[in-house]
């Protein structure tokens, strides 16, 4: 990083913090601190929902995902617009009607205290841990590529945002998210423009897509069908996207306080609904364009030298071991194949026509397969027991391109984008962790009669404590191993389905009461964790995305069975 980059990075981050503190003036009670006095218009709600969902990994991982696996990841979001509709019809009017602070408060009205406490505890456990991991995930990437100390990177990634989050609560979070998204989208657009500009002279935007398409990267719609019927392990296809994505989005936006807390700040049901529906309209195109950026980077690397592995730290590490000769062989072979690929692609480009014939496509796909198999060989070296490195470089691809090719100043801006996109989701998480702790736990079991001023002070203290807790989790997250995003998603899948099941019973199944729901949730949670353990030990074969749907349906079924077989007399006596 040059001086110009450092100046841009520091100024951007300082601007966000100052703006957040400037917007911190709020009334000193729970309504002001957690709900911005319920005065937000729909467009602030929309920015806040989007800023909470999009973390650094969204902007780092998605282009890398498109580079390695193509664009089919966009299907993961197809269930989201449908979930927004269900939320608008059911969840939003009820949450507003009772003027709730947290989603779990409603469960006490509908069921009882123990159901409310169980679900808020599951939320705090899951969200506290996954926020810690989401601090570490971008920090380790920056640390590897820029040589920064990981502990200090964690502290800056998870610490600076605490200043405005503690000071201004939900209002500061919402306004900074608005500014953050404007900076993020502007930066990503400039990066995309420059990728196309750096392509050879005769190659334009559509030609770049044809290059990506010829190599099978423009696979937006896939059906998940293989020779043996539907592949339940295939993670991203039309059906897992619409069905699995629907349940995931419904539980995330409907029962996770970090999202519910965003649209509870709206000034009316109408403003909440408009914010959510607009999110349903713009989310799929937004992900499409981020993935498209990955395809453009892929096309760019077909005309330039693509690194064997995008995380250089791992390459350097292996060159210091007894596998250095193996690495040299792989690297030399890879360079030859890469050169061959460049010559073929450039020869098309020189004719000014990149309409690949079937023969050309087969040639390109074969070369790509050779490159991929060499990358797999290298990854096997990284996974050797004495190296124990990170063999997944998907999240490093886009940032490596930025660092290697973008001009000074812009590099600093894109590093800032990683920080502020992290801050947007972490700040919302801390705000919601604090609101659930004080409303669902502290005021229930510790001190029921607190003044508005005490509420405000305790809320700030809990926000600070959760901020420190998440940084501590981040400092220990290196024990998880390589796939951090997967760890966050799996952690979510273990708890989301069950919590969603409880809410579905609350809204749609009038006869089912508190005791039945509580034990259905406990048994459902044990079942979901058992399925996960069986899958880990290869006894069954199930993609984790399905755990959400299974958890929700299991709780609904168990709730009915327990209500009518076990708790029947109590309810009707």
């Amino acid at each position: 990083m040059s001086y110009a980059d450092w100046i841009v990075l520091i100024l951007t981050l300082a601007a966000i913090i100052v703006y957040g503190v400037f917007k911190s003036r709020t009334t000193k009670n729970l309504d002001g601190y957690f709900l911005s006095n319920r005065e937000m218009p729909w467009y602030i709600v929309l920015f806040s929902i989007m800023g909470t969902q999009a973390s650094a990994i969204t902007f780092l991982s998605a282009p890398g995902q498109a580079y390695t696996d193509g664009m089919r990841f966009v299907q993961y979001y197809f269930g989201l617009p449908l979930a927004m509709i269900v939320l608008c019809v059911t969840f939003v009017p009820i949450f507003h009607k009772y003027r709730l602070y947290t989603a779990y408060e409603f469960l006490e009205r509908r069921f009882d205290v123990k159901t409310r406490t169980l679900t808020s505890f599951l939320f705090l456990l899951q969200r506290g841990l996954s926020t810690g991991i989401s601090i570490y995930a971008p920090a380790i990437i920056l640390s590897s590529l820029l040589g920064w100390n990981i502990y200090w990177t964690n502290i800056f990634m998870g610490g600076l945002l605490i200043i405005y989050t503690v000071a201004g609560g939900a209002r500061a979070v919402a306004y900074t998210q608005q500014l953050q998204l404007i900076i993020i989208f502007t930066s990503m657009f400039i990066a995309g423009y420059l990728v196309v500009k750096y392509l050879p002279e005769d190659i334009g935007f559509f030609d770049a897509l044809k290059v990506g398409g010829a190599m099978g990267k423009v696979n937006i719609i896939t059906t998940g069908m293989s020779e043996n019927g539907f592949d339940w392990r295939d993670r991203y296809n039309l059906w897992s996207g619409i069905i699995g994505g629907f349940f995931l989005a419904l539980s995330y936006f409907g029962t996770d306080q970090s999202q519910v807390g965003r649209y509870l700040t709206a000034k009316s049901v109408k403003e909440s609904r408009l914010g959510l529906l607009m999110n349903g309209l713009v989310k799929v195109p937004m992900q499409f364009f981020i993935l498209l950026l990955g395809i453009l980077v892929f096309a760019f690397y077909q005309f330039h030298n693509a690194p064997l592995f995008f995380n250089q730290t791992q390459v350097d590490k292996i060159s210091q071991t007894r596998y250095a000769d193996s690495l040299k062989n792989i690297q030399e072979h890879y360079n030859l194949v890469d050169l061959q690929k460049k010559e073929i692609v450039r020869s098309f480009a020189a004719t000014g026509n990149v309409d690949f014939s079937e023969g050309n496509k087969i040639q390109l796909i074969n070369i790509n397969k050779q490159r991929d198999s060499l990358r797999v060989e290298f990854k096997k070296l990284v996974e050797k027991p004495e190296i124990k490195g990170d063999s997944n470089d998907t999240n490093y691809i886009f940032l490596r391109f930025v660092l290697d090719y973008l001009p000074k100043g812009l590099i600093g801006l894109l590093i800032a984008v990683i920080f502020i996109s992290s801050w947007g989701s972490i700040a919302a998480a801390l705000n919601s962790l604090a609101s659930s702790t004080i409303v669902d736990i502290h005021k229930q079991f510790v001190n029921k009669k607190m003044s508005a001023g005490d509420d405000f002070k305790m809320s700030r203290l809990y926000t600070l404590l959760w901020g420190v807790f998440c940084i501590v989790v981040a400092q220990f997250a290196y024990n998880i191993g390589d796939s951090l995003i997967e760890a966050v998603n799996i952690l979510g899948s273990l708890f989301y389905g069950v919590i969603l099941g409880v809410f579905l019973l609350a809204f749609y199944c009038k006869p089912v009461k508190g005791n039945a729901v509580f034990w259905a949730a406990v048994l459902g949670e044990i079942s979901v964790i058992s399925l996960f353990v069986l899958n880990e030990h290869k006894i069954i074969d199930l993609g984790f995305l399905w755990l959400n749907a299974i958890g929700a349906l299991l709780v609904v079924m168990l709730g009915f069975i327990l209500q009518f077989l076990v708790f029947r007399k109590k309810s009707f006596s």
Partner: peptide, 27 residues
Amino acid sequence: WNGWYITVIVVLVVQIILFIYFTKYFS
């Protein structure tokens, strides 16, 4: 609000159809 909900569903379906064409055109 039904008009809004139908709009969101129609936009999703149109997007999926466009994506199918996009996939076929470029691959």
